[in-house]
Each structure stands twice: as C-alpha cells, then as structure tokens.
Write a protein that binds this DNA or RNA. Structure first.
Lengths: 199, 199
DNA sequence: AAATTAATAAACAACGTGTTGATTGCTTAT
DNA sequence: ATAAGCAATCAACACGTTGTTTATTAATTT
C-alpha cells in the first residue's frame, strides 16, 4: 500500500464529521445544522470541512449512501425463489431477518431520516430498495404461479413497496418493539396473504 | 361587517405570497427559496412578508393546511358503511371519486410536496388523513364481518395507509394517467381484495 | 375630518457561506 | 536524513439572507 497512515487519518476526520452530523440532526434537524456547527462540535477548523465535502448536503448524501450500502450488502445475493421456499415452509429467510437486524442497529438514524424532519429523498431510496429486494423479485415468483393482480402492475408494486416501508416505519416508532425475527415473520405473513389474494 | 375591503386586500396579499411560494418551490426547491425571492417575485417589500408570516416555514405550513383542508371538506361526512355498500356493488363511492378529482386538481403542488425535494411532514399529514378516511373507518366495517388480520392491527393499518399513499404517488407520477374514476375503482379493487384475504 | 393600518423604504447588526493565502506539522518518498 | 507532499489551521474576505426597527406614504374606515 502506497499511503495508509495518511489515508486513515483522513478517513477518521471524514467519519468524525459524519458522526457529528447525525448528532446535530437529532438536536436541531438537518435544516438547522450549519457547517459552523459541525466543525465546532468536531473541533475542526471550518475550512477543513470544505477540504472533504462540498457543503452539508454533500455530507448528508455520503452518510445516506453508506447506510444504504449496508442494505445492499445484506440482500445482494439473496435468491427470491429461496425466500419463497422458506416462506411456504413458514420460516423467514435468514437474510430478511438480517435485514431487520440491520434496521434495528441503525434505528436511531433511520427514525430521524424517515421522520417529519427527515429527508424525503432517503425515503424514496429506501422504498426503491424494498421494491427491488422484497417486492419485484418475489412478484416474479408469483407470476409463475398464475397469480393475477387486481390492479395494474406498476400500481400494485407501488402499493406493496410503500406498504412495506410503512410497516418498517411503524416498527421503528413502536416501543417496546418486536424482535427482528418477529418482523421477518410479519413480512412472511404479508407476502403469504398477498399470494393467496382472491381472483 | 366591520371591515371588508381592507380584509380582502390583506387576503389578496397573503394569497399572492402563497402562490409565489409554490412557483418558487417548483423552480428551486423549498430549501432554495428565500424571503427576498418571495417578495421580489410578488413585487412586495420584504418587510411586508413579516407583517403576515413569521418566516418561510410558517408560510409553507399555511399553504399545506389549506390544501389538507380541502381533503377534509370532501370526506368530512362520508359514512364508511356507505362506502362499503357501494363497493360490494362494484361501484366507487362518489366522494372517493371526488377525492381523486381534487388530487388531480392539485396535482402539480402535490407532486412537489411528495417528491425528493418535498416535505416529509406533509407526507405524514396526508398519510394520517388516508388512515382516518380510507383505512381505519373501513376496517371497522370489516371487523363486523369477522375479518381476521394476518398481523397486529397497528402494523396492518400502517401497511394500508402507506400503501394507499404509494398508489397516489404512483398516480401523480404516471403520464398519461388514469382518470379519477378509474383510480376510485382501483381503490375499490384493493379494498375488496383485502376484505377477502385468506385466513 | 380624523384615526387606523397595510405597505413602503432604508438602514441595522448578526450570522452563515464559500473561498483564499499563508502557515504549521506530520508523513511519505527519495 | 532530508525534502516534498499534504491535511489541517488560522484569519480575513466579500457576499447574501435574516429578522427588526423607525419613519413615511397612501388608502380605508369610523
């Protein structure tokens, strides 16, 4: 490796700014956060911020991307047919459980991002992820079972993606909250109910 | 009436600022809009803005409330039992159709509010409205028909409220888009499918 | 005719922004 | 070991926006 110690220190500074951003969003909402606040809290010079990020929006984007990367990592090689196999046997797929575990791990920040003071752009991204990994792929399995939709496909997909996001939001709000395993079972039950929808 | 001409002029000024706000959000997003922009476009003195609103957030809130008031007006005395009666006969309830007509009328602004650049607080409010008028009330009718939920009630309500919001979002995005009548039918079909969900 | 008040105009201090140029001090490469 | 490279600091900058204030104008209401 050409340079490591240097890179590590830079990574540390960048991470520090990310952590402080989350802290400050909790305290005053994203709108209320200023670059001055960030560097004051991080005990860095304000100029240092601009050495790494364009502005607070740029930083926010990076933080969100990191979070979403975690989701991708979990679901990237999850076979929807296998998910359905598990489901017909009444068992949640381990990766779906993992997904809920990760959601729980990031609960604090996720609640913030999905709240009234949050970022609609993130909601859209998360919804798109759910559509890709928990809806569309599974729907393809359905279609091989002569499943017939009650409404046009695109609307049904929007219906389900939003619905699952809603369930996640509800979970993040609830206290005490069901375990990730229970939530995976909830997903299973919903998918099953949808599969057996009437003609 | 004590004073009218004066009140009318004030109302006019306030409305002008509301209209300009929507215009400017379309152009640069809410974050990018400044009070200076607003009054420049409205050809008003900047001080005049502060005569009527606290800041741009205050103005935004008033604009949203006005919009939501329109929804309330349509659904305020709609009997859910009657909605279900219509639905079992395969007909959309006229007020549900009216609701979609109103959504269409306000399409431009709604798309903005629900977009990536929109306001999550508004999404929440709209979702709460849908929960009240298209989900909870109708669910009560279901419960009198020994309808059994696959998952805990609160999660099922969150599931459905978000789902309906998702359908509306999909509708606002689509072009060419189905008529309000067709959308009311879509709602009908979804409610029906849910009613007949498997045990 | 007098009082009321929406709107204007101009100025204000305060704050945040993004950028710059010079400097310090640690790390890397020769 | 020395020199170059680079992250981080510091201080200053012009600029824009904010919310408030004070005095003034013009139209309305009483």
């Amino acid at each position: 490796m050409a340079e490591t110690l240097r890179e590590m220190k830079v990574a540390q500074t960048k991470q520090l700014l990310k952590d402080v951003l989350i802290e400050l969003i909790e305290e005053k909402g994203f709108d209320g956060v200023t670059v001055r606040d960030l560097t004051l809290r991080a005990k860095l010079n304000r100029g240092t911020f601009y050495l790494h990020y364009l502005d607070k929006y740029d930083l926010m984007e990076k933080v969100q991307d990191e979070l979403l990367q975690g989701f991708q990592e979990i679901m990237k090689d999850t076979n929807p047919v296998e998910v359905m196999k598990y489901y017909t046997e009444g068992m949640p797929h381990p990766n779906v459980t993992k997904l809920f575990e990760y959601l729980k791990e990031k609960k604090h920040f996720l609640k913030l991002l999905l709240s009234e003071k949050g970022d609609p752009a993130f909601s859209k991204k998360l919804k798109a992820f759910l559509k890709n990994h928990l809806v569309e792929k599974i729907m393809k399995v359905f279609q091989n079972e002569q499943f017939n939709m009650v409404i046009p496909e695109e609307y049904f997909l929007a219906f389900l993606s939003s619905a699952f996001l809603g369930v996640i939001e509800q979970w993040l709000e609830s206290d005490p909250s069901p375990s990730p395993e229970e939530m995976a079972m909830t997903h299973l039950r919903l998918v099953r109910a949808i599969r057996n929808m009437p003609v």
